[in-house]
Each structure stands twice: as structure tokens, then as C-alpha cells.
Design a protein around this nucleic acid. Structure first.
Lengths: 339, 339
DNA sequence: TTGTAAGCGTTATCAT
DNA sequence: ATGATAACGCTTACAA
């Protein structure tokens, strides 16, 4: 089946290409009679516009690009879900690229997307992103950029994120109010912003309740906040601090590693040691005991970031002045059996 | 910063556009002197080709489309990972769309991708896909299509999948050889092909070992093979068949629901009842007891499906005759504590 | 070795 | 109400 073009329709009908184009687009200066003939013929020949030509002409691709650290992660896959659904609803397609937490890949992918002439870009920054020239390049091309989850305050663009420090603060305050006093923290690397922020929240909660901060109660996750990190650190923790009474873990996955070790060692949760995670991954309701954690909106984050992006895209097309929005999505502490 | 075109370079240098184009593409019929000047100016003006124009001219988009039931699933997110990595390695970008297991969305998305003029399409069919005209439309446009995971034998295209029946057969044989005799099966809906195939494998294993097939030992997952299905069915199973000694579950997630219920009820795994899952989700090594399951290649499936697709794309461009490949990827049974 | 010109399929301006 | 024409930015056959 050959692909039908405007030319084909025009030839069949013996009229000009421009009339066909106008008829198809519902321009008022086409007689009803010819419009009907065109519509009929278009349907008969199964016409669909060649988007490549449309793109070239209109300089729009109706496509947005997304760069995330990884797709294989419950949080990001839900964000992606939200992005794709919202974009499609508005007639946009989504190209996804992964940075694998590497700055050079993030830069490379920005260039790929720019070359591809996407209408807008969504990025969750990699942990190793410390410079922002590639992001400024996007702005200089007058293409909207919205940062989500891992944002950079110094970049002039919209963003959607949570308040990691506040969320962590609330979780630790919960533990303190429940009577736990010797609270360990399992954190991620030193350069990941959310690891830093959650650590800050942890420290502030202690300080506000006059519990001395003990650096030896803070453990780093050696791998990539794997559940094995939780398992290994829990082992170490119990050895070094047998009297610990709570663990605040950077992610649910790490917390689940902790729970596994405690279960094996018959360490009662929360009677002997309480455990709190972060993210409200669905597994936190499956594990025994169920895990207290922080609900972090993922699907909604994708939807909202996309909404903002598409609004800015339309705004630019209408030559409107666009004002950036920096949105902080609410988190909520969820108390379950583990605390 | 204005975007540089060939015209800009040509004007700066006082030469023609076509010479610039040829110089940039390394054509031999351009003098070294002018080539160098062009390259220098291109770099200076930060030239990158407008892909939209290139696409229109060459009728290639260097983009492939992917339609999957959902991104929020450990299996599919790993497949996507494989697809994106392999595609990018060969210079292709990936557009992802979700069918949510709905035929009408699958059809709609095929049309979107066709309109977008992607160079090739990858699909994991929805459970409700019972007709294939939309797939044939792809072929009639002479665009390569590769089916993966959920395939349709009657469609003339390449495919990459596993042998669900064989994999299930081996898992159940394992249980039988371990001495389990009253083996229940928790399956998914009646129209999902992999549910049917795994069920067939289960029945065949029983038959080959002269264990009578008892339909009352087969339970359907009411939700979408959620872990709650496993939990609820386990409850029902123990009530209806207190003497059951093993459960073969359609997915790891369902199996984990089963394990949760058994743990709560202090039903010993595997002493009283053994449990086997399917997929080798990483959680199967985290749960207690660790779950015996079937390793199902996911990342590799994405990579291989993409390799085949890109080969067919290049083949078509070279006007080669393309032969479809129907690949069955090996699975392996993994014995852990639960059986 | 370099340049001219046609063409990809559309959209939009300007005549008729 | 309709059509001729230019333009989007690039590639490439052909001419010079």
C-alpha cells in the first residue's frame, strides 16, 4: 500500500494541493462541496499527514525527551508512566534516555534530544551532575526544560520535587516521639543531593529534640542503595551498637535488607529495633513486618512535570512570557508495623 | 543563540550549500582546503544538522517505537532498559507507548507510530489482542516489526520470546521429583497466552508423571496477578485443600503473596508446602524463605529484539530480502529455599 | 572541484 | 473559492 500524500488527493480530484490542504484543515475559505469531496477522498485513500513534512514546516515535533538515571527502578518507572500518560493525552510522544548516573551521558543525551528537535525536555539529574552548561544550552535554544526529583536550584527553569529534608525530619521525629533514642541512619553517597538532604533532616530532628548526633551511627551504602546494603549495614550496626533502637533508612529497599537481617537474627521489630524506610514502595506493605515509610508521589510527579512542560511549550509558541514554577510536592509519613 | 544551517556556513564562506553539505559528509569530491574551512566554520558556528530536514529527505527518522502493556513492572522495565541501550548504541532513539492491556490503545499507538514515521516497531502484545489487522498494517507499510514476550504466531514477523510451557513444565517436574504430589497452580486470566502456556506445562508435567490433574487445585488470580492474589488464593487453598504440599505460581509476585500468608499462618515452607514462582525477580532472593523460580531473560530480550529490528531496518534500506527470525530464549530453573 | 536545481510533503501568503 | 508559489533545511543527480 503506497502512502497517500496531498498531491495524490489533489490529482484524483483534479484540484490544487493547497486547496486540499486547506480543506483538510478546516479553513473557512473552501466551499463545502469541495471540502466534502476532499474529506471523502482522503478517507478513501487512507490519508494521514506526513509528520516529517509537518515537523519541518511548523518546526514542532510534538515530541518531548526524558532523561533519567535509570528506568529499572520502581520510582522512576512510575514517573515514566505518569509522563507518558500525560504527554499522550495532549498529543505528544515521549523519547526516553538513561544517564546511568553519568554526567557525560546526560550531556550526550541532551545533545541528541536537541538535534532531534524535541519540543521540550524533562530531566532527573544524575548524582554526578555538578555543572550545568548542558542545561543552559537547552535554555539558549529556547526549549523548555523541567527538572524533576533531582533538581538543581541554580538552573533557571521549572522543577518538581519533594522536600527531602522535611520528609526525613518528620520520619525521625516520629521515631523520637515514639520513644526511640538511639537512632541510626543508613544513607547513600555524599554527592547525591537527596541523600544529603535526608541526612540533614535526620540531624535536625535529633538536634531539635536535644539528642546528640553520633556520626558512628551513620552508615553509608556501599553499593547503589541495594537491599544488600541494608543487610550488610544492619549486621555491622548490631555489632558496633548492640543497644541501637531504631534505623532510619534512605530507601525502602535498604530498609527491607535491614528487616531481612533482623528477622534472621530474631531481632524483634519494632520492640528491639524500629525500622523506617523512604518511598512507600508497594513491597513495604508486603514485607513482614510491614514497613513504616514516607509516601513520595511518583506518578503524580511525572504528570505534573509534564503538565508544566507542555504549558511552557504552548506558551513559547504563543510568544507568551513564561514564568518558571518550582513545585514542592507533599510527602506523608505512613506508620506501619515496623515502628 | 540562533540555530546554524548549511546556508549560514555557505554564506560565511561564500560557497554553495551543496559544497558545504558534501564537505560535512566527507564526500571525496571536495578539496581538502575547502573541506577544512567548512569543518572549521561548522564548529565555530556550532552547526548540527536539522534532523527534521534530514528525516524528510532521507525518509528515515532513526527512531523506533515500542508498545508494551505497562512500564511499571520489573520485567518490562528491564526489557526497556535493554531496548534503549541497544538502540542508542546504534544511533536510534526510542519512543515508548503503553497499551495498558487494551487492544484499542495498541491499535491507536500503532497508528501514532506509523504517522510519526518511525523506522521500526517493537511490541509486546496486550492480553486482549485477538485480531492482528493493525500489525499487518505495519507490514504493508514495509516497516519492520518485532514481537517480544507476548507474541502472535500467526503474524508474519520476527519474534523473541521464551517457551513458557517448557519452563513451567520443568518447574513442576522439579517439584514432582522432590516428592511433592498435591501441587496447586495459581494462574492468570484465560486469554493471556503465557498464562495458558504455563498452565499447559503444569498439566503436562503432572500427566507425564501419572499424577491426576485436579481442576480444583487451579486458582485464578482475580486482580492483575498482584501479590494480593497470591495471599488470597493461598488462604482459599489451605481451606479447601489442607493437604496440599506445593504451589506453582504464575509469577514471583503472586508467589510472594503466598509466602506472606504461609509465614503468617506458620505454615512451614517447604516442609509443609513448597512454593515456586516465575521470573526470578530480584525480590525472590530477598524474601524469607528465598523463592525457587524460573530465570526469564528480560534485559537480553530487549537487546535481542532490538538487534533483530535494527538489522531488518538496515536490510530494508539496502533492499535486501529479509528473513524473519523467531527466537526462543532459554530459561533456567533456580532452586532456592522455598522448594 | 564546485555549483545549480529538483525534490521530500507540508503550510501559508498572495494573486486570481 | 481556488490556485500558484515560496519556504522549511537538507541531499543528490547532474551540469559546469
Amino acid at each position: 500500500m503506497e502512502i497517500t500524500t496531498l498531491k495524490d488527493i489533489a490529482q484524483q480530484l483534479g484540484i490544487s494541493i493547497s486547496t486540499v490542504s486547506k480543506a483538510l484543515k478546516g479553513y473557512p475559505d473552501v466551499s463545502k462541496a469541495t471540502r466534502d469531496r476532499v474529506l471523502l477522498m482522503a478517507r478513501k485513500l487512507n490519508y494521514t499527514p506526513n509528520q516529517l513534512a509537518v515537523n519541518l514546516r511548523t518546526k514542532q515535533t510534538k515530541t518531548i525527551g526524558v532523561i533519567i538515571p535509570t528506568t529499572v527502578h520502581h520510582f522512576f518507572s512510575k514517573v515514566i508512566d505518569g509522563i507518558i500518560e500525560e504527554a499522550e493525552k495532549k498529543g505528544y510522544l515521549v523519547i526516553i534516555l538513561q544517564s546511568n548516573e553519568k554526567l557525560f551521558l546526560e550531556k550526550l543525551h541532551v545533545n541528541l534530544l536537541l538535534d532531534k528537535r524535541v519540543d521540550g525536555i524533562l530531566i532527573s539529574l544524575s548524582n554526578t551532575t555538578t555543572e550545568y552548561v548542558h542545561l543552559k544550552k537547552i535554555a539558549s535554544r529556547n526549549i523548555p526544560l523541567v527538572l524533576f526529583d533531582k533538581v538543581a536550584p541554580s538552573v533557571a527553569c521549572s522543577s518538581v520535587a519533594i522536600d527531602d529534608k522535611k520528609a526525613a525530619y518528620e520520619a525521625v521525629v516520629h521515631l523520637i516521639e515514639k520513644g526511640y533514642k538511639k537512632i541510626a541512619h543508613f544513607r547513600a553517597g555524599l554527592n547525591a543531593q537527596n541523600s544529603i538532604d535526608r541526612f540533614e533532616g535526620y540531624k535536625k530532628a535529633l538536634k531539635d529534640h536535644t539528642i546528640p548526633f553520633d556520626p558512628s551511627l551513620v552508615y553509608m551504602c556501599a553499593n547503589n542503595t541495594d537491599f544488600e546494603d541494608g543487610y550488610a549495614n544492619a549486621q555491622l550496626l548490631i555489632k558496633e551498637h548492640p543497644d541501637v533502637d531504631a534505623v532510619f533508612s534512605i530507601t525502602d529497599l535498604v530498609a527491607i535488607g535491614v528487616i531481612k537481617y533482623f528477622n534472621e537474627q530474631k531481632i524483634q521489630i519494632p520492640a528491639q529495633v524500629a525500622v523506617v524506610g523512604f518511598s512507600n514502595w508497594f513491597m513495604s506493605t508486603v514485607i513482614s513486618p510491614t514497613l513504616s515509610t514516607i509516601e513520595q508521589p511518583s506518578y503524580d510527579m511525572g504528570v505534573i512535570a509534564t503538565e508544566i512542560l507542555l504549558n511552557e511549550i504552548e506558551g513559547i509558541q504563543k510568544k507568551e512570557v513564561i514564568t518558571h514554577q518550582n513545585i514542592i510536592l507533599p510527602t506523608t509519613f505512613i506508620e506501619r508495623e515496623s515502628s
